[in-house]
């Protein structure tokens, strides 16, 4: 019962956040200067009639939020925008001349592939190394782990990408751009998978290193705190060995903050994806954003931001669910 309440509350919260994102997105592109549609419709070189016609065409003549002058309360720019979104219409790209939704759809799979691999590796390594560092608290191993983590955290993602790109291509002959070799005919799906894998290697490695540092630090402090708890002393008094204590009493408890961190960190992951994809010309949403910035392709930018924000909110909800499963205290708060 209590768990259901908790989940319902978290779900309602996510919906609220998404609504907020929608509104933010709407206003960002209406209020800030720079949107070409708005600029054109206000261009002083055009005569008043043309401007009015353009404004009507883009719906800019309507009130921003609520229509109180008649024609229905919801006959406004905001609700027209929400209505278009509800129909999956994210606008048309200035650059490609195609629907933004379609372009995003083609690219999102590649980003997920990249982010998932990097995240997974970073979580496994970070949790393992963090546990080890905390266990060997204040030994040279621990100090080394901290220095490595802080350094990894301080690396600009794009710069690490560039360094790995230079090293990987010079010394290991790894491909540096794209998702697969251009113009290649594959003998089998297997051969294609290997080619994609080779292309994935450097971007994934970049991702892993950048995320690893923080996961390790958080896991370390989390384990350190737990190993100082009274129940660890109880477990020791019960005759359990160090390995058993770490496995049965420290790991699950220490994972709790990690779950929260992974979810909160997705924003940071997205930032990483933009940089990694840009450096390695990986055809995902991140490099799409980069191109959109360069070409002032606002509909793409707006659409990408929306999709990313919603994914992050959804991932946070998922993390809340996992947390609820891991921590029995959620059941009856």
């Amino acid at each position: 019962m209590a768990r259901r309440d908790y989940l319902l509350k978290r779900a309602a919260w996510s919906v609220l956040t998404i609504l907020f994102v929608l509104i933010l997105n709407f206003f960002l592109f209406r209020i800030l200067p720079g949107d070409p549609t708005t600029s054109i419709a206000k261009d002083p070189r055009l005569d008043a009639d043309t401007r009015a016609a353009l404004a009507a065409r883009f719906g800019l003549d309507k009130p921003l939020v609520l229509n109180v002058q008649g024609g229905g309360l919801f006959d406004s720019q905001l609700f027209a925008y929400v209505d278009r979104l509800a129909h999956g219409d994210l606008g048309v790209s200035f650059n490609y001349g195609r629907p933004v939704g379609e372009i995003l759809g083609e690219r999102i799979g590649n980003t997920v592939l990249l982010v998932l691999g990097g995240q997974l590796l970073a979580i496994i390594l970070g949790v393992g190394l963090g546990l080890l560092a905390a266990w060997k608290n204040r030994t040279p191993l621990d100090t080394g782990a901290i220095i490595f983590s802080l350094t990894a955290w301080s690396l600009p993602t794009f710069w690490l990408g560039i360094l790995l790109l230079i090293i990987g291509s010079t010394y290991f002959g790894l491909p540096t751009a794209g998702r697969q070799t251009v113009g290649m005919d594959y003998a089998s799906v297997w051969a294609q998978a290997i080619d994609v894998g080779r292309h994935l290697l450097l971007p994934t490695l970049t991702f892993t290193i950048v995320l690893l540092g923080e996961y390790m630090l958080v896991m370390r402090s989390s384990v350190l705190e737990i190993l100082s708890e009274d129940y660890i002393l109880t477990a020791k008094a019960k005759g359990l060995s160090q390995g058993q204590i770490l496995r049965h009493h420290a790991l699950q408890n220490a994972m709790l903050p990690i779950v929260t961190l992974i979810a909160l960190n997705l924003g940071f992951t997205v930032a990483g994806a933009i940089q990694v994809e840009t450096v390695f010309s990986w055809p995902g949403v991140g490099s799409l954003i980069y191109e959109a910035v360069r070409r002032q392709d606002y509909p793409v930018l707006q659409g990408a931001f929306l999709v990313i924000a919603i994914s992050v909110v959804a991932a946070n909800l998922a993390a809340d669910l996992v947390y609820g499963l891991l921590d029995p205290r959620i059941k009856s708060p």
């Binding site: 956040t17 933010l24 800030l32 720079g34 949107d35 997705l266 924003g267 997205v270 606002y298």
Partner: peptide, 20 residues
């Protein structure tokens, strides 16, 4: 909490791209 969830960099990119 809402601001905490919204990814920073994309939002920064959008805003800086628009305001110059």
């Amino acid at each position: 909490d809402i601001f905490l969830v919204i990814p920073d960099l994309p939002l920064m990119i959008v805003i800086v791209a628009m305001v110059g």
